[in-house]
Amino acid sequence: MATHNWIDLAQDADTGIETLRAHFEGHAYDPHWHDSYLIGVTEQGVQQFNCRRARHNSVPGQVFLVEPGELHDGDAPTADGFTYHMLYLDPQWLTREVSAVFEEAPVNSQLSFARTLTDDPRLAVATSHAFRTLHSGELRIVRQRAMDQLLERLTGQLHWRRRYGEDPRLPWVAHKAREYLHAHLHHDVGMDELALACAVDRFRLSRAFKSAFGLPPHAYLVQLRLARARHLLAKGELPADVAITLGFADQSHLGRWFVRAYGLTPAAYRKRCTNLPDR
């Protein structure tokens, strides 16, 4: 990571919510996705990113909203770069917390953001306040009140939608391949094996998968492993052990992918989530 780029990350002990403040100049991170809901505010500069098959430019005061599994990247199109702060909200936590506001969720549905970028100033204020209270470790009652205020504003951006897994617009072969990758996350899966499991040739499988999910199968598998690596590292597991568990060649191999996606090393991420030194 370039010396002019920086990341300040913390994790709330009560909720597990991660808070991050960062600055990037030039290329920030490669296309990747998270298994959390992301809500953040651009503080300075222009934050350019691709998401939902469209390019967005977030400027100071705007709120950006990214769902679990949504592919996105990050770049600074101007010389001064961009600075932002953000919260990672666990899907189960968010669904539970908004249940008092929404009616019971329809069958096979999940919460979805109405848009990727919004100019709602009250949501921006609520997001920034929640970030500050969690990131600085304020009293529990202060943190909880700040999150309640954020949820009150956030519900205006939420609605229920059908889960991606049941989306009839996506081809069956893409669903089948994704299910296989999730089931064999820790294995050294080859394209021949995946194509055989889906009963199609490799080329048809690759075209269908990338059209459906925005990434070829091998890149999607890497993203699955990186998402799992975040969980294991946040629990205190060592980067070398995580690399072996998830099928990376070694710790360096995991580290290269991790930095490209998240902007910091596995060891740094583990330390900031757990305060444990790397061994």
Rank of each mutant, 00 (worst) to 15 (best):
D148N: 07
L224A: 01
Y180Q: 09
N57V: 10
F131H: 14
A76P: 03
L123W: 05
K271F: 14
R225E: 11
E70C: 10
P106Q: 04
T78G: 11
C198E: 09
D35W: 12
R55D: 04
C198I: 14
S109Y: 03
I7M: 12
F82H: 14
Q251E: 15
E97V: 01
F258D: 05
E193A: 13
T133M: 10
E152R: 09
H129L: 12
L71H: 03
W93L: 06
H27Y: 05
Y180S: 12
P91S: 10
P168E: 03
P91M: 04
A229M: 11
R52F: 04
Y164K: 13
R270K: 15
H129P: 01
A240R: 15
G214D: 04
S128L: 14
E18D: 13
R143F: 03
H159E: 07
T118Y: 06
A261C: 05
H186R: 14
S112N: 05
T127K: 07
L194Y: 10
A2L: 15
Y164G: 15
I7R: 07
E193L: 08
L151A: 00
L232N: 07
I7T: 13
M147G: 00
A124W: 12
P217D: 05
P217N: 02
D73Y: 04
N275P: 07
P106K: 01
A114P: 00
W160S: 08
R21N: 13
Y180M: 06
F64H: 11
A234H: 11
T245M: 07
S99E: 00
H32G: 02
R279Q: 15
F113Q: 00
R53A: 08
L246M: 06
F102W: 01
A130H: 12
A227C: 09
D14I: 05
H32C: 02
Y37F: 15
L232T: 09
A126F: 02
A79Y: 04
L150F: 04
H85A: 11
A2Q: 13
A22P: 13
H27Q: 07
R53L: 00
F49R: 05
